[in-house]
Computed example of a mutant assay.
Amino acid sequence: MSDKIEQQIQISQELRPTQASLTYDLETALESIVSVRARIPDDAFTASFLGTDRSGHGVRILDTGLVVTIGYVIAEAEEIWLIGANGQAVTGHVVGYDYETGFGLVQPLAQMDLPTLDLGDSDIISTGDKVVVAGCGGVTQSLDATVIAKREFAGYWEYVLDEAIFTSPPHPDWGGAALISANGQLVGIGSLYVENVAPKIAAGNMIVPINILKPIMEEMLDYGTTLKAPRPWLGLFVTETPENLVVAGVLDGGPAEKADVRTGDAVIGVAGERTRDLADFFRRIWAQGEAGSEIPITIYRDGDTFDVHISSVDRRAQFKSPELH
């Protein structure tokens, strides 16, 4: 794997932050951000839909060099490189991945002569706040942005955040990018490009708030994940339409496919209760018990409404574990 930063699309000059408008040392803050490159085995569970060569960003947050990133970049990685904007490159090792929040932690296996970024308080970030969304590469990879909204987010891959941060304009290389507050602290990690983030706002980024990492970071470092009971996982992708929730896909060999759930099925409810929206659907599934619970789903297909009972599993058990170094 290359130890050089690949050519990136540079942020337009007029959209970049400037030191004159900030109270913290912008250059030092940006030096804490590294490029994360991961190679995934061809037979990994996530290889078919996330690819085997992944890249994103990460932020150094501890004196040990610990890097926080968005988990999908490093999930099931067999090889990781961390590359600083100064060109320094070291290998890294996945030390933690929490599927519920989406955070991943990587420990560099050699010293990097780079600063760290303090963790801030994402709870006090408000709509209208001016922030910087930054990738590795200094100011040319950094974007002056505004917090457009803080609200619930549901992802079609069985993922819900009670409150995500939405910023605009969108950073073009958002995965693992740092959300830096007005006082120069890390308050979130970039996860997605999203459309229609707010009225009259065509696009932006969804950011995972850093405060939801703080209570679980020690467990992630000690055990590789959290110790809470795993949620039931069905292995299906669901999307919202004006009329219903609709199955957009099922994973080969997953619980939903084994129960004969099909792409195009309309999802009516869970355990006899009609679902209101995507977040409500997933929360009703999780309310049925831990991974391994049988989940009753009401399906509408070809004019018939019927119940399907899906034997859920632990999502974590599907993933390849990283080799210890």
Results as ranks from 00 to 15, higher is better:
Glu218Cys: 00
Gly224Met: 05
Ala248Leu: 10
Leu251Ser: 00
Ala203Ile: 07
Asp252Leu: 13
Lys214Val: 11
Gly224Val: 08
Val238Trp: 03
Gly224Thr: 05
Met206Tyr: 04
Lys214Arg: 10
Pro232Trp: 03
Leu245Arg: 04
Pro230Gln: 09
Tyr223Gly: 12
Gly204Cys: 04
Leu236Trp: 11
Ala229Asp: 11
Gly249Ala: 14
Ala248Asp: 13
Ile212His: 09
Trp233Val: 12
Asn244Lys: 12
Arg231Tyr: 10
Thr239Gln: 15
Leu234Ser: 00
Trp233Ile: 11
Ile201Pro: 02
Trp233Arg: 10
Pro232Phe: 05
Ala203Ser: 11
Glu219Pro: 05
Pro215Thr: 07
Asn211Pro: 00
Met217Leu: 06
Asn211Lys: 11
Lys214Tyr: 04
Phe237His: 11
Gly249Trp: 02
Leu221His: 00
Pro242Arg: 09
Tyr223Arg: 13
Asn211Thr: 08
Glu240Pro: 13
Leu251Cys: 00
Asp252Cys: 03
Ile201Arg: 04
Ile201His: 02
Trp233Leu: 12
Val247Leu: 06
Leu236Glu: 08
Gly249Leu: 02
Ala248Asn: 10
Gly204Met: 08
Asp252Ala: 13
Gly249Gln: 07
Thr241Tyr: 01
Val246Ser: 01
Ile201Gln: 05
Thr226Leu: 09
Ala202Trp: 10
Pro209Arg: 09
Leu234Ile: 07
Val238Gln: 03
Leu234Met: 06
Asn211His: 12
Gly224Ala: 07
Lys200Arg: 14
